[in-house]
Every structure is written in C-alpha cells, then in structure tokens.
Amino acid sequence: MQKSVFRKTIEIIIFTVFIFFLFAPLLSLGIWSVALRWYWPHTLPQEIGFDYWLQALGITKSLTLGAVNVIPAFLLSLGIAIIVVIITMAIAIPAGYSLAKLKIPALLKGIILILFLLPRAFPQQPVFLNLMLMFNKIGLTGTVLGVIFVHIVVGLVFAVWITASTFSSIPPEFEEAARSVGATRLKAFFKVTLPISTPGLIASAVFVFLTSMDEFTGTFFVGLPFVTTLPMTLYSASGSNIQFASVIAILLLIPSILFMILIQKFLKAEHLGGMGG
C-alpha cells in the first residue's frame, strides 16, 4: 500500500515534469499567437485577439509587416508530403523487402544500405548545396518537383531502414506456409507478408510524412524563392513577426499530433492482437 502511494507520487512528479516540458513551449506559442500588444514588464499580453490567426488563415487582409496568408503554404506542404510518402514507400517497400528477405550476399547488402545512408552521413548543407548546383543545370531548382526529389532523398533513408527491419521481424514461415498451400511468391507477399507488416509500414510512412512536412535545409537550397513550404514561411515570419511565426508553428504541429494519435491507435491495436510490427 505504502509502496503504491510512493509510486503514485513519483508518477505524478514525472508526469508533471513531462507536461511542463511538452506544453510550456506550446503554451508560449499559443499566447504569442493571440498577443496583439505585449510589452515588457508584463507577464501576460495586454491585449489579446485572433487578428493574426485570421490574417494568417487568409480570412482578413492586413498590411502588417510579415503578414502572410499561410493557407497556400500549408496546402503546398501537405501536397508535397503526400506525394513524397507515396513515391518513397513505393521505393522503400520493395527495397526493404529485398534487403530483409532475399538471399543477398552480406557485402552487397552492406553496400546497398550504405548507399541509402550516404546522403545523411555528411553535413547536410554541403550536400544540398551540391544538389542545388546539379539541379541548376537541369532546371530543377525552384520547382516543386525538385523539392519533392530532395524530400524523397531525405525520407528514403529512414523508410528503407524501418521497412527492412519490419520485414525481417516477420518469421519466414508465414510466407512459406502460404506457398505450401499454393500461393506464388507474389501472392504470398500481398496476402500474407504485407498485411502482417502493415503497422511497421504505417509507422514508416508517417515518419516520411512528418520529415517532409518539417524539411527545411534542402527546401531552402533547392526550393526558394519559388517554392515556399510551411517551414519556409515560418522562417521568413520569425525574422519579422513573432505572432505569425507562432501561428505557423502551431499549424505545423497539427498534422504531427494527428498522426501520432493515429499511429498510437494502430500500433496499440496490433500489439493487443499479438502480431509484431
């Protein structure tokens, strides 16, 4: 009994600290996004209102410095992220499966994995600077296509690693059992391996999606000034108008939080189901 009280206390302390670290920055962002007038030494804004939200969401127009309509940027980011997820997963699923299940010599496997890792093994700025110079030659800089390409390069590393480990965690007997009852390799993959690995693949896709939504460095070099994704708008707003920056930052959090809830629901259900992701 005493032990459980002690335990409860510890839990409450940890929870409070956790909440503080998680929500204090969010709270600060929230307050900033509604602060119309907030001067030192006041603890809270003197005047609050949703003017910046309305402007940012394009509902009212204003000539305030740094005022932007973030809706097009949000939609652009979302669109890019969705396309990036589709293309990345289309590459990562077969690549991860091959690495996990096919009898590839260890040396070759190592080379393939290093090739996927290589873009992340160096400092990002020089890599993207080089990429920009290359894209300049073929006219991909400043285009959505160029940005999508950069995001795929960034996302693919994680996607291949996560899908490969998902597939290798599935016992080979599931697929062998399917083949023994008459399924071809392809059928066994689509009817057995793929459904069983869904949780891991979803986790991988969500990761790619969030990486694309937040991607900054590559977009900065390859996309600007014509492709302004949400992080780009955040960057330009943060220099001039902290309120707009706060609004954008909160908007950036929304898809992440939604996906976290989704993924948790998915993974939990699967764990209860006793199948490994």
């Binding site: 062998e176 059992a177 083949r179 008459g182 459904p195």
Partner: peptide, 20 residues
C-alpha cells in the same frame, strides 16, 4: 518445381498460422 507447384501440405514447428 517451386513450393506452390508441389502440392505438399506442411505443418510448421511454430504453426505459422496467419495472425491477420
């Protein structure tokens, strides 16, 4: 022949029943 063309039933040590 590949496994699916052999018409042989197999019982695995870990059963390998498809969990989904």
């Amino acid at each position: 022949f590949p496994p699916e063309k052999r018409g042989i039933g197999m019982v695995f040590q870990n059963y390998a029943l498809w969990p989904h």
